[in-house]
Design a protein around this nucleic acid. Structure first.
Lengths: 292, 292
DNA sequence: CCGTGTGAAGCAATTCACAGCG
DNA sequence: CGCTGTGAATTGCTTCACACGG
């Protein structure tokens, strides 16, 4: 999942839990699909199945919004669509800017899911002068120099950052200074922002890493004796390295660990892996995009 | 954040909390940056700041992996990089396939962050015959017909779905049947998968909707009297509609709510919004991509 | 009688605060 | 003395189970 940042601690009485807020768009999507099929009502059970959650959770979530269902019947689809849209603030128009029009930025600009939810791409911004004026998704790309003016003229409060990691912090500062208070960050960096500014981040490689973790577990369950042994050796070697940490240079240590950890046949591959991890370019994992 | 699906309930003793797993890649990124700057050690305080979390949480997280720090000193950067990489399973090579080579799929194929973390794009797959053979990010796109063969020949366990929503479920079934057990889903649909298969989803428009929710709250705080009144009216109108729900058609109801909700000046805009929400195309929010 | 709405119980994650070790 | 590692306290989320109302 993309990850988020906690907001203020539920300002007052009508505080909807963050976890619930994160699921509302899911319900909305399921409801919209039902609405298109002209389904008049749904039970919590049905809707929950469509949204991929369990029904108790769904009912609890809706209870924070109010009593919008009918006992013995279920929920009125159209009515719920309206209520959730309103709660999410989708009954108004949100102009957004996308900064960094590389592969990813362009994909985002072309993404139909924004427009259909009340998000209007007000401008595309890139630091590359060669990009300026080029149309992407039917909108002419503008140069970073115009950033402040664009934000202010369009009353933009939400910005999307799809620049390389190195540019992201600076871009966020300019966005915020110009009036943006919510940022969706695709650059693989932690943004430092003042209080009152919300940042949500989406990091593609983080999601894959989490999957790899679970995948590894699965593999471990049907582990061959060999693999188990290899792992035990690695563990032991690792401990060893740690124990002597004080006397060795960091570099030597890591190498020693990698070498000791992987016996015979597996060695070549594991070593290669370790090296390529090290070789990663500076701030290298950029989702795409423009030269800062 | 992108959202995930819970896994099995911590199979045995060494169960690392899911929340911790989700942060490990973050720590790894911060540590890699330090490593590149040849920083030998970090304190939990420093590393936490770099990763954007608080230090108590970080220490607790690391405590699940083992005692890898040195009291009074901090953590050895290289050593921790190695331990976390190993825990995440990044010391091995993970071939992945990307299905759906539209704007988003192409952006993912070009994304440098995968390769640098041990993920190797083994194949790009698209249903459009016209795409077959075309090189994207230096790899020739293959046709969906080849899907099973590709998965099996390359021993792929992780698949990325970047198709339109309508194609996603079917693609996931084929991937799973061929041996994939972890899926990163960019299509705006809930995938139905058997036990033992992990799905993580990234939905761009969901992230924006969550931001919009908070953004709306911020606006509400500096609310003008007018806005507050308008909202109260909307609330009352909504209740009213609900009360008479039984006698009205769903469609009439929603319209009534929208009309009653928004007095005078604000009306035009709000009505427009409601309409456009309704007008959304069927399965319309596709991140990009190939015709199924 | 069926499905919502919700207190209460159960879990999981976060934060606190400090003992213990280098 | 400083910083890690961790029990204990706390907060927040999920799940259970059933009373209540249409």
């Amino acid at each position: 999942m993309a990850t988020g940042r906690t907001h203020r601690p539920a300002t007052r009485s009508r505080g909807i839990p963050e976890a619930t807020v994160a699921r509302l768009p899911l319900y909305l999507r399921a409801l919209t699909a039902l609405s298109e099929r002209s389904v008049p009502t749904v039970s919590s059970e049905e809707l929950a199945a469509a949204a991929g959650v369990n029904s108790a959770k769904l009912r609890k979530d809706f209870s924070y919004l109010g009593s919008y269902g009918t006992r013995g019947v279920g929920y009125d689809v159209e009515y719920l669509v309206y209520q959730i849209s309103r709660e999410l603030g989708l009954t108004q128009d949100w102009p957004v800017v996308i900064v960094g029009i590389g592969n990813l930025g362009a994909a985002l600009a072309n993404y139909g899911g924004f427009a259909s939810r009340g998000f209007r791409v007000a401008a595309l911004i890139d630091a590359d002068p060669a990009m300026a004026g080029k149309p992407v998704a039917g909108i002419a790309v503008q140069h970073t120099d115009e950033l402040e003016k664009i934000i202010e003229d369009n009353g933009v409060h939400i910005g999307v950052i799809a620049t390389p990691a190195g540019a992201a912090q600076q871009v966020s500062e300019r966005l915020i200074a110009a009036g943006v208070t919510s940022i969706l960050n695709f650059a693989p960096t932690v943004l430092q922002v003042p209080d009152g500014v919300d940042v949500r981040k989406v990091d593609l490689s983080i999601e894959l890493q989490i999957l790899a973790f679970h995948e590894q577990r699965k593999a471990g369950e049907e582990a061959t004796a060999e693999a188990v042994v290899a792992d035990a050796v690695a563990e032991a070697a690792a401990k060893d390295v740690k124990d002597t940490a004080a006397e060795q240079s960091a570099e030597a240590k890591r190498t020693a660990a990698a070498e000791a950890a992987v016996p015979s046949a597996a060695r070549a591959e594991a070593t290669a892996r370790t090296e390529s991890t090290d070789r990663k370019g500076p701030d290298g994992d950029v989702p795409a995009v423009m030269p800062a």
